[in-house]
Design a protein around this nucleic acid. Structure first.
Lengths: 239, 239
DNA sequence: TCAGGATGAGTAGCATGCAACAGGTTACTC
DNA sequence: GAGTAACCTGTTGCATGCTACTCATCCTGA
């Protein structure tokens, strides 16, 4: 965990650093930490750490336990499903709108981002792939013209990423995800809202399925069927 | 603004009290306040107030300006539209799921809540109506079995309520909203997901239209057409 | 041996002190 | 009189002291 740089709000810096520490696995879910200890590790006082922890608690990443310390939340499979249920509600319509609105210039940027994902993946650069993927999604959501939606969705994605569950189970799955993105890009190029929506939905659903199966495989006695079924619970209707 | 009660976390209490003060119009959007002043009014020290303000800032209700104080954010019409765009994505599917899942017991509770809304409205009890309406919505969303979705949607609703824009423009509109709720209740009674979804969508859309028209009417030179059109932008497609 | 209470270590929650900073006002210089 | 610099007021940001609380351990007494 690095040290702080003066000039910027400490609370904000500490929030980011703690979030990064959790995402990177430096702080592990389920573990207990104390604000005092974290403050010492970061070389700041307890106050900004405490405030950062409260913000992270509001995000749902940690839980503050009175007089006991703070616990990095182990997100449950149930919650993963909840998050993806929401993402499946939000992202496909946003992608459809994006496909309607996208300009030539923005398409070029999409191609570049897509290239960066492929390059990073080819170079086996996990964090790089993740970062490029993040930017791809953010840019896509941004085109829907609803900044609040973009921010919201980004937070939901962060929540899952914070778990360090991002280890793609297999080459095959990784290839599938890449194909999905290709499909999204194609739909955007054709400015086809329905196709974009479907492609994004497919992509998000696949990501969710991979995560769910992965967690279930690691946890004996846990069947993925119920969770997989729940995924489409809110979206199975054509309302 | 009432005083605090011991035993519960001050920060949490202060957060709620400030939110309530904003919603009730006691603190007005656009106005400047200081943490010191608020702390004195509430009879607590600056720390819990400061922490509460940071949480409210994360919710998007206020902005903390360094060394200048805090400003209750005047939400723009654009942002109102954004919020309702999201709500229209989230609430109808949740209502559909709720209609599938609702039990007799829960239906009875719905009827009671609905009755409370009507009673409060008949008694011209604005805050009471609001509170009952809030509970009605929360309970409805809760039935969808996705607590995170419920919380998220509640926050979006709060954001609009925080503006004190809740003055229903006319008796007629108020009657329309009541009819909407009746429709939602009916759909639930029939356990008809499609009808519930449509009713909720109608209700949310109507609320949004009322707000948009209201704000435009109060702001000379502002046409509501563009904003109204944007409302359905993300949902016009059957994806 | 075991139950139960005392105790101590560690924690968060809150109050408060202090410094840095922004903005407006005043006073001073030219 | 105009422009600028000093200052004064009010504010947040952060550090730190103190209190109340939780939990685990140990000690006591039967």
């Amino acid at each position: 965990m690095q040290q702080v740089t003066p000039g910027v709000s400490l609370t904000a810096q500490v929030t980011d650093m703690l979030r990064a520490a959790i995402t990177s696995g430096e702080m592990t879910p389920g573990e207990h930490y104390s604000a005092i200890g974290l403050a010492e590790r970061l070389g700041v006082s307890r106050t900004p750490v405490r405030e950062a922890l409260q913000l992270l608690e509001k995000e749902g990443i940690v839980r503050i336990e009175k007089n006991r310390g703070v616990r990095v939340l182990q997100i449950s499979l149930d919650e993963i499903v909840q998050i993806f249920q929401i993402r499946i509600l939000l992202e496909p319509p946003a992608a459809a709108r994006a496909a309607e609105m996208v300009t030539k210039h923005e398409l070029a940027h999409f191609r570049e981002l897509h290239g960066r994902i492929l390059d990073a993946a080819a170079a086996d650069d996990g964090p790089g792939t993740l970062q490029a993927d993040k930017e791809f999604h953010l840019f896509l959501m941004g085109l829907a013209g609803n900044p609040r939606l973009t921010a919201l969705d980004g937070e939901l994605r962060n929540l899952v990423l914070a778990q360090g569950l991002v280890t793609i189970p297999s080459i095959r799955s990784s290839q599938d995800l890449a194909d999905d993105r290709r499909g999204i890009l194609d739909a955007l190029e054709r400015q086809d809202p329905l196709a974009a929506s479907a492609a994004v939905r497919e992509h998000v659903t696949r990501t969710a399925r991979l995560l769910i199966s992965g967690v279930c495989a690691k946890t004996p006695g846990l069947s993925s069927d119920a969770y997989l079924a729940k995924l489409d619970q809110l979206t199975k209707l054509r309302t």
